[in-house]
Write a protein that binds this DNA or RNA. Sequence first.
DNA 1: ATAAATTGTTACAGTAAGTGTAACATATAT
DNA 2: ATATATGTTACACTTACTGTAACAATTTAT
Lengths: 137, 137
Amino acid sequence: MSASTKLSTSVKALCFLALDDKPKNSTEIAASVGINASKLRKLLSMLGKSGIVKSDSGMLGGFSLAKKPEEIHLQEIYCAIEDRKAFYLNVNDDNLEENGRSEKINHFFLDLFSEIQVEIENKMTDITLKSIIDRIK
Amino acid sequence: MSASTKLSTSVKALCFLALDDKPKNSTEIAASVGINASKLRKLLSMLGKSGIVKSDSGMLGGFSLAKKPEEIHLQEIYCAIEDRKAFYLNVNDDNLEENGRSEKINHFFLDLFSEIQVEIENKMTDITLKSIIDRIK
DNA sequence: ATAAATTGTTACAGTAAGTGTAACATATAT
DNA sequence: ATATATGTTACACTTACTGTAACAATTTAT
């Protein structure tokens, strides 16, 4: 599952949880979102570790939002489900040139990509779950 | 090879070509860049189709820049080597929900990702090969 | 206590994608 | 003709991804 698909799938699940306060089990959420329940549990487990959802075992268990939709930002959702930094881009650094020109070009791109990353994260920080819910009503 | 690696590898090759006007063969360039010659030819072939490099067969053949470094933009390099649009991000759209909430969320993300893409392309349009060469001197 | 339901994690087979290299047709200069 | 170069294809090999099942741990109902 690509990073962007993980992100949109997570948001779909969170929107479903935001519909009411009763905990929903993974089967129910997975059916609504259109994904396998086991895969979904993996995603929600990561969101749980970041304090975005809470989960309970047992017959009355399931997942529910741990915070209000206006307190959940897109950026924290992304960081919760993706271990490497948002939209990280890699650069091949295993070449053997002696004069260091390749290394300088690598640095140039690492800087460029990191600039881009900061801009994307800033953009995502401004978007809350609530703003998405309002927008798709 | 990831999109970002292709981009930096291409720029390394183009910087090497910018050193002087004599055509360089793929073996020579590949050695400098640290990549297999056949792979490099694939990359340069794409750059050739976009009019960024020119190539000649035969004993005096090889690759050389088709334009001056100040006329080559990072964005056109990227578009030459990547068929899909720059930094395209995908969204899972095969779910079966009846009310269309998922579709609206998909659209939300497609819009967001396309905004991001435009910003990245704008950033890359402002960077020329010459500006990179000057920066790594 | 026992059974039922649920999360969280692991395992695994099956599939898809990426990688590196070689090979060869085509083209050009000597 | 021969040598050298590009452009493309093919292929074996490896790596990564995918979907699903299975199971331990936990919690509630009976």
